[in-house]
Design a protein around this nucleic acid. Structure first.
Lengths: 208, 208, 208, 208
DNA sequence: CATGAATGAGGATTCATTCAT
DNA sequence: TATGAATGAATCCTCATTCAT
C-alpha cells in the first residue's frame, strides 16, 4: 500500500510537472499572441509535446486558460506577506509592500498578468471567475489590514472599500502602462515604490 | 462646381455615416465577444448590412479595430477641457476634471475602452499605435498642465512624468475594475471623483 | 427615316466602339491574369468605365470571353490571303504564307491567342465553339488549297487531313513556345518562316 | 535502428502514397474544370479525404499544381529513351521515338499535359518553372542527340535550336489539337508517328 | 446609358479536437 | 500515455452581378 501510494505520488508529481510544463508554454504563447490567436500546436511545440498530449492534461483550450488563472490564485495573494512587515512604520511598510507586490510581477509573472487581464476583458465566464477567486479575496485581505491600521490611528479614509479600489487601481494601472510598453515607466520602474508610497501616504497618513 | 462640391460633400457624409454605423456595430460586438471571437457576420448583422458591404468601408477586420482606436483619438484628448476649469481652486479643479474624464467613459465609451485595451494587450502593432497616438499625447498634455500648476506653487512632485503615470494609472485601473464588474465600484461610481481628488491632493497639494 | 437610320447607325457605331473598348481591355487583363483570376473590376478599370457598364454590353463574364473568341473569327481566317500568293513558286509561297500568318500573331494578337487557348483548354463549351468556328473552317480552307497544289503536282502527302494537322500543329506549337517565353525563339522569330518552309518542304533527312 | 529506419521508410511511403492519391485526384479535377474553377472540396472528395487533409500534404492549392508539374519532371524526359533506339536507321528511329513520346501522352498523361499547359499559359511563375524544369532540359537533350546524328551525316539543319523548336512545336501542337477534340486526329492517332516521321524527314516538296 | 454601392454565395484555409496506433 | 494524421466546422474575404440614382 505504501508502495502504491508512493507510485501514485510519483505519478501525480509527473502529471503535475507535465501540467506545469504545458501551462508555462501556454503562458508564453498566450502572452505573445493572445488566447485566440495562439494555437494548440503553438503551445504543444513550445512545451515540446505532441498536440494530442495536451488533451491528456486539459479538457480543451479554455481549460488551459483556467489553469493559468488558477496559478495566480496560488501565487498572488498571501496574507503572511502582510504580517511579516506589519510591524514597521507606515511609510516603510507601504514602500516595502508595494515593492514586494510589484516585484511579484516580473518577467513571467508580468506575462501571466497580461494574458489573464486581456482574456478577462473579453470573456465573461473568466471575468467572473477572476473577480471571485482573485480580486475579491485580495480586497478582503487589504480591507482587513487597512482597518487594523486605521484602528491604530495610523491611516484614515472615509470610504475604505473605495479607497482600496483606488489604490489597487493605481497598482493595476501602473502594471498596465508598463505592459503597454511605456518607456519612461520601464526605465524608472525601481522608483515606483517610493513614489507610490509617498503619493499615497501623504494623503492617507495621519501619524505625522 | 458648387453643385459638385455639394454632392461630394453629401457623398462624403454618407460614407462617413456608414463607417460610423459599422464602427458602432463593431464596438458592440467586440465588447461582447472580443476581437477574435467576433465575426464579420456578427458585425454586419448588427450594423444591418451585408457581409461584403463591410469591405467597401474597411480593408479588413483589423482596419475596423484601427477605426475604433482612431475614434478614441478624436474624443479622448482635448486640451481645452483643461483650460476651461483651470482657473478654479485646485481641489475643485481636480474633482471636476476627474469627474469629467470619468464621465467620458460611460456606456458606449466604456465598451470602446474595454475593446481597445483588451486588443492592445494582445497585439503589438495596435499597442504601439495606441501608445503613440493616445497615451503619449495625453501624458504630454497632462505634464504641461502639471508644470504650470507647479510653477504657481499649487502642487508638488519630485518626478513629474512618473507622478503622471501613477495618476493615470489610478484612472485606468479604476476603469478596469469597473469593467471587470466590481459591484462596489459600480454602485459608488459617483463617489469616485471626490475620493480620487482627496486621495490625490492630500498627497500633492502644497497650498494647505 | 434616313435620319433615324443615321442615328441608329451612329448609335450602333458607338455601341460597337464601347464593346471593342471593353474587349480590348478584357484581352489585356485576361492575358495578364487568366480568365478566372481577372475580375470585372480589373477589366472595367482598364477600359476606363464603371463595373456596371460592362453589363450593358455583355451579359456576363463568359460572354466577354466569347466576344474575344468571335474576334478571332473575324480576323483569323481569310481565304483571299491564300489566293493572292498562290501563283508563286511553292517555296516562296510557303515562306510568304507562314510569314504572313505568323505576322498576324504579334503583340495584341498573340495575347488574344494566349487567352483563348488557355481558356479553351479548360472550358468544354468554349472548346467546342472554338473548334467549330475557328479550327475546322481553317482546316477546310487549308485542305482545299493543299488539294489544288497536289493536283498541280507541286506537293505530296498520303493523308492530307493529317498532314494539315501536323503543319498547323507546328504552327500552333511554335506560337505556344513563343508565348511560354522561349528566349531563343523570341530572338530568332524572323528566321522562323524560312526554317518552317524549308523543314516542311524538304525535311531533315540527308541519307536519302 | 533498423526497425526505426523501416518505420521511417514505411511512413515515407505512406506519405508519398497519400500525396500521389491527392495529385491523381487533382489532375482529374483540374483537367475537368481548370485550376481556378476546381475547388479544394472537389479534389478532397475525388481523393476520398477531408478538405483539411489536403493541407497536411500540400501547403496550398498552388503547391498541388506544382506537385503536378514536378510529376512531369519525373516522367517526361529520359535520355535513356533516346539511347536505346539510337542505333537504328534514321527513319525507324524517328518513327519509334515519336511513337514512344506520343505513347507517353495517353489518358492520364494527356490530362496532366492539358492541365499544365492551360495553367502555364496564365501563370507566369508556373510558366517560368515549366520552362526551366521541363522544356529547356528537353531541348538540351534533343539538341545533343541531333548534333550527334548530324555529325554522322544522317540529318541536316542550318539552325539546330530553331529546328528543335519547330519539331517540338509540331509535337506540342498535335497534342493540343488532340486535346481540343479534333476528331480526325483522334481517330487517326495511330497514324501520326509515321506521318510525323515522313514529313519530318522528307518534307512535302515534290517539285525539285 | 453610366455609375458604383450593396449583395451574399462561394472558396481557400485554419485549427480545435478526436482517435487509431 | 504519447503521438500526429484526419477531420470538418467555421471564418475571412472576394467578386460576379444587380439596381437605385
Amino acid at each position: 500500500m505504501i508502495a502504491e501510494r508512493k507510485r501514485d505520488s510519483a505519478q501525480e508529481q509527473f502529471v503535475e510537472a507535465r501540467r506545469s510544463q504545458i501551462l508555462d508554454a501556454a503562458t508564453t504563447v498566450f502572452a505573445a499572441k493572445g488566447f485566440e490567436r495562439a494555437t494548440i500546436r503553438d503551445i504543444a511545440k513550445t512545451a515540446g509535446v505532441a498536440d494530442g498530449t495536451i488533451y491528456n492534461y486539459f479538457e480543451n483550450k479554455m481549460a488551459i486558460m483556467l489553469g493559468i488563472v488558477n496559478r495566480l490564485n496560488e501565487s498572488d495573494r498571501r496574507e503572511e506577506d502582510l504580517r511579516q512587515i506589519e510591524g514597521m512604520d507606515t511609510r516603510t511598510f507601504t514602500r516595502r509592500y508595494i515593492a514586494h507586490r510589484l516585484g511579484m510581477f516580473t518577467g513571467k509573472e508580468l506575462e501571466l498578468f497580461q494574458v489573464v487581464i486581456a482574456e478577462v476583458l473579453t470573456n465573461r465566464e473568466l471575468r467572473d471567475l477572476y473577480m471571485k477567486q482573485i480580486i475579491e479575496p485580495t480586497f478582503a485581505i487589504s480591507e482587513a489590514h487597512f482597518r487594523r491600521q486605521m484602528a491604530k490611528g495610523k491611516v484614515n479614509a472615509d470610504d475604505i472599500p473605495l479607497t482600496m479600489r483606488a489604490i489597487s487601481g493605481m497598482f493595476l494601472g501602473l502594471l498596465l502602462l508598463r505592459i503597454m510598453g511605456d518607456t519612461y515607466l520601464e526605465s524608472h520602474w525601481d522608483a515606483v515604490p517610493d513614489l507610490f508610497a509617498n503619493l499615497l501616504l501623504d494623503g492617507i497618513d495621519k501619524t505625522e
